[in-house]
Design a protein around this nucleic acid. Structure first.
Length: 552
DNA sequence: GTTGTCTGCCC
DNA sequence: ATTCTGC
DNA sequence: GCAGAATGGGCAGACAAC
């Protein structure tokens, strides 16, 4: 058995360096000396996971739970106040608080710490909240404050020591003396870091090479990079590309063997039971074995795509699936085929995979696509997609292989986006590396009827560090009030915000919220009475909705 | 039984 | 999801 | 160019509080 303390020490060392090579070396050394039976657990805990990626169990513990139970220690109020205001993150706050509780470490092993975390995760049903709190407090009483810090961090998935999945993969490769590329490929197919580590360290290169795609073990989806315009995508791909509609729905990976069909989400969660009508349809496909990928969108009776919110009502649904099925009909748009029969197509070109897809499934299940001959034709297709209520287009390089889990340059997404000039109404204090900055800005538009500014969303994106710093100073100088973590300010600062959609909001009184808002400019040239008005925003929202379908 | 809070997971 | 930063 | 970090809106489900 390896002491959990050693894992905590490793994390402390990682925290002290920003060099990836050093982190890789430190982790590799640790993986080589950790007790083999604890290897898989350790690999996950180090990068901030209690359970492997595909494990459906979760801790059901968050900041609120942990701070509630720490409050029960009845330490001086000053200890809590100082810890919360000084600590950069939750793990650090826990350490600072527990320093005053002076628990002695019983030197639990990695396996024992994990066993206790597991029993917290499986506690369910009436009274389980209290039971989980009790069990976690019990765990804290057996470890010292340094160990508690990293247990908390693993539980919250925020290590903040700079090493995560990517560096872990390199470390596994180094520890096992196997090439990094092979280890990464094995991980994309196996989907579980712990398994990859065990195989690499016990079976070496041969074991890693033998990992391949198996049906009903979902693989990491290939990711796309964003292009700012169609022209940019065209240039980047050298004009030899295909365009597909980018549907605003849920990405799914479909595995079929005989009459058995299962569907997995982008994060590899099994969501088969949410879409019975689709499963039934897919079971009838002639292909005996296949692995397909596509996007599911909600549609109205006329077939127009519904806003994203509606498909979300179905993806995570467990109860009343049949009722949701009637209310929110769906359509599947397939765009890739990674396996047919015994043939593995991951390394085949996109062109070949597309042809195989067409030969495998009926045409009405396939995404709309165009191989453009000119950029003019491409632009028309983009307009076409947007006007029909879709998100935009995907541009794909014809000869590119499927590269699971990586954001390569062979898939580019081009999304509709627009800008508004909005006013900063308030800002939240940041967390972690933004601890000392006001980092999350509440955005408002002017209601011409009342003359008041009403919130329509928040954003923390778009500014550079130096801009956060100067904006923090500026905002503090016009502060009107401060409550909890939020500083309210005079509505004076105007920022240009880029967004992708105006959503119907059940939360904001304006009943609208901006999706994916990011600051693209600080409009020092504009005063707040020149900002976008609520009335204008409503009009834009109406126009957006007119392109999309409606639920009856 | 209803409403509110927390959590995880879609984007 | 998007964006910025450091290697 | 990759990897990591910070954090958005909104959905269902599970449980807690009333």
């Amino acid at each position: 058995m390896t002491a959990y303390r050693e894992l905590a020490t490793l994390c402390q060392q990682l925290e002290q360096t920003s060099s990836r090579l050093t982190m890789r070396r430190l982790i590799a050394g640790f993986l080589r000396r950790v007790e083999p039976s604890e290897l898989e657990i350790a690999v996950n805990l180090i990068i901030g996971r209690v359970f492997p990626e595909q494990d459906p169990r979760s801790m059901q513990m968050s900041f609120a739970s942990v701070f509630r139970l720490l409050g029960e220690l009845n330490l001086p109020t000053e200890v809590y106040r100082r810890s919360y205001s000084t600590a950069v993150d939750a793990g650090e706050a826990v350490r600072m608080i527990l320093k005053h509780a002076s628990h002695k470490s019983r030197r639990l092993s990695i396996a024992e710490v994990h066993r206790q975390l597991e029993s917290i995760a499986v506690s369910r049903g009436r009274g389980s909240r209290k039971e989980r709190d009790h069990m976690f407090r019990d765990l804290l009483s057996q470890i010292d404050e340094i160990e508690a810090k990293y247990v908390t961090k693993s539980m919250f998935g925020e290590m903040r020591h700079g090493a995560s999945e990517g560096i872990m993969l390199d470390a596994i490769a180094e520890a096992a003396s196997v090439s990094s590329d092979l280890v990464r490929r094995a991980h994309m197919f196996a989907g579980e870091l712990g398994h990859v580590a065990r195989i690499a360290l016990t079976k070496g290169e041969k074991g890693v090479r033998d990992v391949r795609i198996i049906l009903f073990r979902p693989i990491k989806p290939m990711l796309a990079r964003t292009a700012n315009s169609l022209e940019e995508a065209w240039t980047e791909l050298g004009g030899t590309l295909a365009l597909e509609y980018k549907y605003d729905g849920a990405r799914v990976q479909i595995h079929k063997r005989g009459r058995t069909v299962r569907m997995y989400s982008r994060r590899l969660t099994d969501i088969t039971r949410a879409f019975p009508e689709l499963i039934e349809q897919l079971r009838k496909l002639p292909a005996e074995r296949t692995l397909l990928e596509g996007e599911i969108v909600g549609v109205d009776p006329a077939g127009k795509p519904l806003p994203f919110q509606h498909i979300m009502r179905r993806v995570t649904r467990v109860h009343q699936v049949q009722r949701a099925m009637k209310k929110i009909p769906i359509r599947l748009h397939l765009f890739d085929c990674l396996m047919v029969g015994d043939e593995m197509l991951v390394d085949s070109s996109y062109e070949i995979r597309w042809k195989t897809l067409l030969n495998t499934v009926p045409a009405d299940l396939v995404a709309s696509r165009l191989v453009p001959r000119s950029i003019v034709q491409a632009s028309a297709f983009f307009q076409d997609a947007c006007s029909k209520g879709h998100e935009g287009l995907m541009a794909k390089a014809m000869s590119s292989p499927y590269t699971p889990g990586t954001r390569g340059k062979s898939w580019l997404k081009i999304k509709f986006a627009d800008t508004l000039d909005v006013v900063i109404l308030a800002a939240d204090w940041g967390y972690g590396r933004r601890h000392n900055w006001l980092s999350n800005y509440h955005l408002g538009v002017l209601d011409e009827e009342s003359g008041e500014y009403v919130p329509v969303g928040k954003t923390f994106k778009g500014l550079r560090d130096d801009e956060f710093q100067s904006l923090t100073e500026r905002l503090l100088s016009i502060r009107t009030a401060e409550r909890h973590n939020t500083v309210y300010v005079k509505p004076e600062i105007v920022v240009e915000v880029t967004y992708n959609e105006i959503q119907k909001s059940p939360h904001y009184p304006s009943e609208m919220a901006l999706r994916f808002a990011r600051i693209t400019r600080i409009r020092n040239d504009k005063s707040s009475n020149q900002a976008t008005t609520l009335q204008t925003l409503r009009e834009l929202h109406r126009k957006e909705l007119a392109r999309k379908g409606e639920v009856s």
